[in-house]
Amino acid sequence: MPYDRTFNWEPSRRWVRGYKGAVAVVDSRAAVLVWEPGHPVPRYAFPEADVRTDLLRPAENPPAGTHEGATRFFDLVVDGEVAYNAAFEYPDLPGYLSLEWFQRAEPVLDRWLEEEEEIFVHPRDPYKRVDPIPSSRHVRIEIGGQVVADSREPVLLYETGLPTRYYIPPKDVNFDLLVPTDTHTRCPYKGQASYWSLREPVEGVPADVAWAYPDPIPAAAAIKDHVAFYNEVVDIVVDGVKEERPVTLFTTRLAEN
């Protein structure tokens, strides 16, 4: 896995396209994956010839000190709509352009494809695995002393860098204790999630504590409609043994909700 304190890049053999509306701004079979220091997920950079540079103009107000010292920034103009600082060049990758993708309030492009599959949020990391495996373990989820789910048919999802997530079949979840919310998130490895909060709030348990993927991507089909809970804030008992609550990249955010 690329070291997270240095600038790394490697070729990708995937055909990558990015669209603004119906306009293909990027169409490349020679993309490279780039890992910036301190960023846990990669982004793509593309040969300039594979980017619609006719839609780019020098940035009016380029940001300083971002993207490993990039000094060349470009605004993207499509059908009169401007996305500022949408593209940039890494000093260590001359001749390649990267487009802003994630961590922006408004996305630069509307749609990204790897081959014919739409991808969300950020490129999938080839060094990260997401393995949903059906199990016969006995898993019980408790919140505030109440049993919210109890199953001997969970799907255990093993994801690099995260604790095991226990996805429970809907028949084994007590939905009387939950209420659906309007929250939706996207994951590049699983798809779009829908959420539930507790019907009766419990101190220390945030909103949107449970989620499911009604229409997961094919690689995660085993978790379809199954419900998972944040291990960080609920009690999970597996085969009679209560698990410790892990500290993860979600812990701080959950504490703030």
Rank of each mutant, 00 (worst) to 15 (best):
P62L: 13
R17N: 02
A105W: 06
V247F: 11
Y90M: 08
V16S: 06
S98E: 10
V25P: 01
P134L: 05
L113S: 00
P62T: 08
Y3W: 08
R57F: 05
V209I: 15
R186S: 15
K224Y: 03
T164P: 00
Q103Y: 12
R186M: 13
A24Y: 10
E116Q: 10
G69I: 13
R152Q: 11
R57C: 09
T183H: 13
T71W: 04
P163F: 04
A222Q: 08
L177S: 05
V247S: 06
E68M: 15
A86C: 03
L156M: 15
Y84R: 15
E200N: 15
P134D: 02
R137D: 11
I119N: 04
P42E: 07
A212K: 12
G144N: 04
Y96N: 06
Q146A: 14
G18Q: 09
S194K: 10
V139R: 01
R152N: 07
F250G: 05
I168V: 15
Y96T: 05
V202Q: 05
A228D: 04
R137F: 03
P58A: 06
L109N: 03
N61E: 04
E203K: 09
V205M: 10
L109A: 01
P37C: 11
T252C: 02
A45F: 04
T251V: 11
P188H: 09
Y44C: 10
F74S: 00
